Amino acid sequence: MRDVPCEIIEDLMPLVVDDVCSEESRETVEEHLVHCKQCQLKWQRMKADLPIAEKKSIDATADDRVIKGMASTWKKGKKKSFLKGVFLSALSIAVLLLAYVGLFEWQITSVPADNAEITDVGKTEDGKIMYHLNINDGYSVNTLKYSMGDDGNFYITAKRPVVKEEAQPPFALEKGYDSIDIPDQESFRGQKIKAIYFGTPKDRTLIWKKGMDLPDASEEAKERFGF
């Protein structure tokens, strides 16, 4: 055992406590403390004054939980993005379908009265008014809408979609006979018909009005309706 003065041991103690000394210095201090009571007391006081570093437990599963949390967040975000994509796709399809129906299917455009030729107007014994309609703008007609105002005026309005189609034979409503059963319409609507117009209240052509002297319906018209 080396005979090292206590002064040197006291100088080495802080280095040993802070673990910044060599292994040889540590062994020297430990050997000296074995037989030196005075240095032992100083060593104990020094260690007692040393702040104890807080030991933090290391959670071995911390990284795993972080990774799982990231994966869960990613999955939720992916699901939300998927649902959002489905919703936007369905909305786009609905808008396109609505636009298609609005342009090609909905009968919302009225044929101007100037584009309609009304000929061969006649009547039958049971009160029907027959006439021949010719839409002369070259486009097909899909619907004839019947309506009646409070003033007793009856309107026949030709309707077609926004996107028009060329009329092709055999022609449907754009070229042919039509018949209005006045007694039946009056019974259905609960008021008397004073006049029949083709068109709308703001754009119309007179077909018949009460008191007008009409010839009997033509044989062609009667044949069309099975008379």
Rank of each mutant, 00 (worst) to 15 (best):
D3Y: 14
D3G: 05
C6P: 07
C6D: 08
C6Y: 01
E7P: 02
E7A: 12
I8W: 11
I9S: 00
V17Y: 00
D18L: 15
S22Q: 08
S25F: 06
T28G: 01
V29G: 01
L33Q: 01
L33P: 00
H35M: 09
C39T: 07
K47T: 14
A48L: 15
A53W: 04
E54T: 12
T61W: 05
A62K: 05
D64H: 10
R65D: 06
I67C: 08
I67N: 04
K68R: 13
G69S: 13
G69P: 02
G69C: 13
S72N: 11
S72A: 14
T73N: 05
W74F: 12
W74G: 02
K75Y: 03
K78I: 10
K79I: 15
S81F: 06
F82A: 08
F82R: 05
L83K: 09
K84T: 14
K84E: 07
G85C: 08
F87D: 02
F87V: 15
F87L: 15
F87I: 12
S89I: 11
A90I: 13
L91E: 10
A94G: 12
L96Y: 07
L97T: 15
Y100L: 10
V101R: 00
F104V: 14
E105K: 13
W106D: 05
Q107G: 04
Q107Y: 04
T109S: 12
V111L: 06
P112D: 05
N115M: 08
E117P: 01
I118E: 01
I118S: 01
T119A: 07
D120S: 03
V121I: 14
V121G: 03
T124D: 05
T124E: 07
K128G: 01
H132T: 02
H132P: 02
H132M: 10
N136Q: 12
S140P: 01
T143V: 11
T143I: 11
L144I: 11
S147G: 09
N153F: 00
F154W: 06
Y155D: 07
Y155Q: 09
I156V: 15
T157Q: 03
K159V: 04
R160Q: 14
P161Q: 08
K164I: 04
K164Q: 14
K164M: 10
P169R: 05
P169A: 14
F171A: 08
A172I: 11
L173R: 01
L173F: 06
K175P: 00
G176D: 01
Y177F: 15
I182D: 00
P183L: 04
Q185G: 00
R189T: 02
A195M: 02
I196V: 13
I196M: 00
Y197E: 03
G199R: 01
G199S: 09
P201D: 09
R204C: 07
T205S: 11
T205M: 04
K209V: 00
G211S: 04
G211C: 07
L214P: 02
P215S: 12
P215A: 09
A217W: 00
S218R: 00
A221F: 01
F225V: 11
